[in-house]
Design a binder for these strands. Sequence first.
DNA 1: CGGCCGCTTGAAGCCGATCAAACCTCGTGG
DNA 2: CCACGAGGTTTGATCGGCTTCAAGCGGCCG
Lengths: 253, 253
Amino acid sequence: MSGQSARSVTTRQYPCDKCPLRPLPTFRAFEKQELLFVSTFKKGELAVDRGATVLVEGSHSAHLYTILSGWAFRYKLLPDGRRQILNYSMPGDLIGLQGSLMGEMQHSVEALSPMLLCVFEREQLHELYRNHPGLAYDITWMASREERMLDENLLSIGRRTALERTAYLVAFISSRARGAGLNGKTSVQIPITQQHIADTLGLSLVHTNKTIRKLIDRKLIAWRDGGCEVIDHDGLKDLARWEGLGEERRPLI
Amino acid sequence: MSGQSARSVTTRQYPCDKCPLRPLPTFRAFEKQELLFVSTFKKGELAVDRGATVLVEGSHSAHLYTILSGWAFRYKLLPDGRRQILNYSMPGDLIGLQGSLMGEMQHSVEALSPMLLCVFEREQLHELYRNHPGLAYDITWMASREERMLDENLLSIGRRTALERTAYLVAFISSRARGAGLNGKTSVQIPITQQHIADTLGLSLVHTNKTIRKLIDRKLIAWRDGGCEVIDHDGLKDLARWEGLGEERRPLI
DNA sequence: CGGCCGCTTGAAGCCGATCAAACCTCGTGG
DNA sequence: CCACGAGGTTTGATCGGCTTCAAGCGGCCG
């Protein structure tokens, strides 16, 4: 059973002023004052294993998180077990904001790889809004960004063919991964199984496999070491008729 | 051509202290100070016709809106014209927040009925965040609410059958309509065509029609006067395996 | 070595798409 | 007053993309 909620609070390895993410060109710089507040906002770090459930639908978590490293996905289930993956999360993304604002979580979050999370307390969100309007604005911005990604995913599932959808999804994830600073010298290894892709795109596993094979045959992607690798990013975007992500600088909390 | 951007600024009929929506039990009350600010935040009212395009993908609008009355829908298009409806909007909902926060609109908004909108200026959002943390929190809350609806819609399109999807959509819209105070003595008339439903659910028009017929035959809904009416709300929810909306009180700006 | 997980492949069948046509209502103009 | 056309709904027939069922393969780990 891989779904167990294995987790352990580690000692703090990354004080906010030595945040490994903030120096990246994708992220906006902090005001000194904001950095100070976030340092007190951060309550610790949480390490979770691959396959661990970080947050579970129906719960009322006292925490929200920023991903320091690793990948995760958000999903919902129907009563009979059908699963829909809603989106993926990677370094710099907030996890659990919906639950913090509105009370109960209405989706679950599972780690796709070992992860390191910054832990924040929901309770202090009000203080953040009261004293740090810039950060408050950033949080709304990030919520809007998530909304935008969901809009695009809806368009994809609703109106693109299986081949287009798959091309879109791989291009989308790899764009985001690059935006999160995950590009090694070569292209990114996306740590997902074909079942994840199927559950994201609303397809069956069998048909997903056959569709991925077409992308491989066209030399658009490769499937290696239990993960996906992009070979021809522009080819994927063309096939999916996708414009790509705006590459604006974004906030990090 | 019904897509023209017909619009006209009317004189202000509803000062914020006489807002027809706020007294409704669905909405949270304002602090006196918040009411004052929103009164200055509101720049006027905009009346649009049915079929008018309120906001268009790719534009940089200087405004955002709250719906005073009427219905609208958000949608995206693929280059070849395929349309995906993302969500519906009704009284009390914000329109154009994404665009205000992030610059460019990445979806369009079209009126489903004549509408009356409160007009706000994007520029003043920063002032709102600086001086009214409570309202800032409310805005984030509303963005999260939209995100939640999108999550549910994704689950629906990705993993529910055509019949379940249709049942879900109708139940969902009518729940929201009731939450927006649109329930007359009888049930709500939802002012949409079957083409809208098809474009929301990722189905063809023909199949949507046949699916709707099944719901009618089962006496779950009725189709009258070019609109949809719910007859058996619980029946729809059961069929869709849908839990329903949390009926929490929500903010209004 | 055996079992599990993830990937692959073939065959059969169905859900929903597409094609085609007709009908109804309503507004417009001759 | 009726002819006409447009938009929306309806229905039947055929097609095909995707699902489902079934089975086998390969690698990794206890």
